[in-house]
Design a protein around this nucleic acid. Structure first.
Lengths: 153, 153
DNA sequence: GTAAGTGCAAATGGTTTGCATCGAA
DNA sequence: TTCGATGCAAACCATTTGCACTTAC
């Protein structure tokens, strides 16, 4: 973890970005919450626990940089805010997908990547070169499944 | 087409919604552009060609109703605005996916639904009941593919 | 020392809402 | 006639930006 932070710090400097205390805090929060899907505001909340003076704009600016370096993924579950997830340096091909419960809103991850076949097909039939994909699966989680009456979305 | 409009009108009245001229115009635009992915503002633009007095709020309110009735799909390609697509009444299981070009922004649709197997697996291993899914495939379209140097997103 | 980074507050832009008015049933 | 629907403008809210100040290098 301290290790990861050092690696990322080096990556930043390679790109002529400074490693400021604020960026370090934000990175720490992201690294400690790799399994969550934090919004910018949520990240700020966690950062402020240790560094109360940090501003929201800095969070956004840092996320922007990390995103452009491929160090965070950005996703949108339709609740009006973007959510961010730190991406380990060496897991280049790590493609995970999300199960989104329409009742309780819980988001679960699944690791399988069963889409390589589909990607090959898309390339063959459309000439489209795939660099990434995003699969969201909507439905009802185990707890909510029996009660799924109301919405017929 | 006139036919579809009548069907939808009936559906609306079944739910105690009125079929106003504004809603009719909005529906017409949606039906005539089923293959596009229009934003609310774009829909308004097309509606205004025939009914210049319609307001943006009405478009949003109508889309909200149609969405709640499952008559339009809503999607987000990450450009900060939601995009809407009319869904034919009888095509309940119509699952199409999107190829999004990172260079020119063009969005292509693919019809194949190769995810049924994955859905079954998700149910078995997680107890998650799938009602819908959304697959976005990012990459470079045929025209942009050779030039894909710069971003390494 | 200096350009990059920061915090704050103001601006932006898509979407929503309050309200007085209008009109479909 | 009546309550839902509309248009307008204001409100909202996540994100971005301008700017004077600070700081990592």
């Amino acid at each position: 973890m301290e290790n990861i932070l050092t690696q990322v710090g080096k990556k930043l400097r390679d790109r002529d970005y400074k490693l400021t205390p604020q960026r370090e805090e934000i990175l720490r929060v992201l690294i400690e919450n790799q399994d969550k899907h934090l919004s910018a505001e949520e990240i700020l909340g966690l950062v402020k626990e240790k560094a109360p003076e940090v501003g929201l704009a800095t969070v956004y600016r840092t996320l922007e940089i990390l995103y452009s370096m491929g160090l965070v993924h950005c996703m949108d579950f339709g609740d009006g805010r973007k959510r961010y997830e730190f991406e380990l340096l060496d897991k280049k091909a790590h493609q995970h997908h999300h199960l989104i419960c329409l009742k309780c809103g819980r988001i679960e991850e699944i690791e399988e990547d069963l889409l390589e076949e589909l990607e090959r097909e898309v390339y063959k039939s459309k000439g489209f070169t795939v660099t990434n994909h995003q699969l969201k699966i909507y439905g009802f989680c185990q707890e909510c499944a029996p009660k799924k009456k109301e919405g017929e979305i």
